[in-house]
């Protein structure tokens, strides 16, 4: 487990998501990477029953990189509390169905090819919500290191090399206050949730 940065990649006008994934795959393969399977990160959110007072949201995420774990993040006001559990936590959510109901229409996932290049692991994900395409997320992990500040320069340089030097690369919001802490898989999950939530909001705006 190393340090991971998740970055949005804008899809150019008149181009499809598939085209962008293919283009980036070619670039990564040209650098000497090998494809090592596919990956999948998904997120389903549950809202508390109106009679329980202030609305709370439980986000349940799975990451194929940690296939035996279920990541759960409870959003309550401005607090985020997470629990990492084994696979049966999904059944526990069914037991809670009287209290928390799934917003099925906002089930969102990012999936695509996974590459390895020396100490780096790169994942190109196309994000879909309800089968409709939302955008591209690029995940880059530098595996030998566990604190973000020690490796941030290297990750930024790698991403700029891959995405073009004009791309501005900022540390993700979630990592900004944790640059010197030990990085764990839940930090990757928090980054996905931040960007998934942003995608869900853009949909709402478009509908309006």
């Amino acid at each position: 487990m190393g340090v991971t940065v998740l970055q949005q990649f804008p899809v150019p006008e008149n181009k499809t998501g598939t085209y962008v994934i293919e283009m980036l795959s070619k670039r990564i393969l040209a650098l000497g990477a090998t494809q090592q399977g596919q990956f999948l990160v998904d997120c389903e959110s549950y809202l508390s029953h109106p009679q329980m007072g202030t609305t709370k949201t439980v986000h349940i995420l799975h990451n194929s990189e940690q296939p035996a774990s279920v990541f759960s993040i409870l959003e309550s006001g401005n607090k985020n509390i997470h629990v990492i559990a084994d696979g049966l936590f999904d059944l526990f959510m069914i037991k809670l169905s009287q209290h928390y109901t799934s917003k099925k229409q906002t089930k969102i996932e990012s999936k695509g090819p996974r590459f390895e290049l020396g100490d780096f692991c790169i994942k190109l994900g196309s994000v879909t919500m309800n089968q409709s395409f939302k955008g591209i997320l690029i995940e880059v992990e530098y595996r030998p290191c566990v604190t973000a500040n020690a490796v941030w320069g290297l990750l930024r340089e790698f991403l700029q090399g891959l995405l073009g030097s004009s791309t501005v690369i900022q540390p993700p919001q979630h990592l900004k206050n944790r640059m010197s802490e030990i990085y764990t898989p839940i930090d990757t999950v928090h980054q996905y949730l931040e960007l998934f939530s942003a995608y869900r909001k853009t949909t709402a705006l478009r509908v309006q």
Partner: peptide, 18 residues
């Protein structure tokens, strides 16, 4: 019965859950 191994802030999580 459901037995689930959990890490992290489980007590706080359940409190906030209601």
């Amino acid at each position: 019965s459901l037995d689930i191994a959990c890490s992290g802030m489980l007590i706080e999580f359940l409190n906030e859950l209601g």
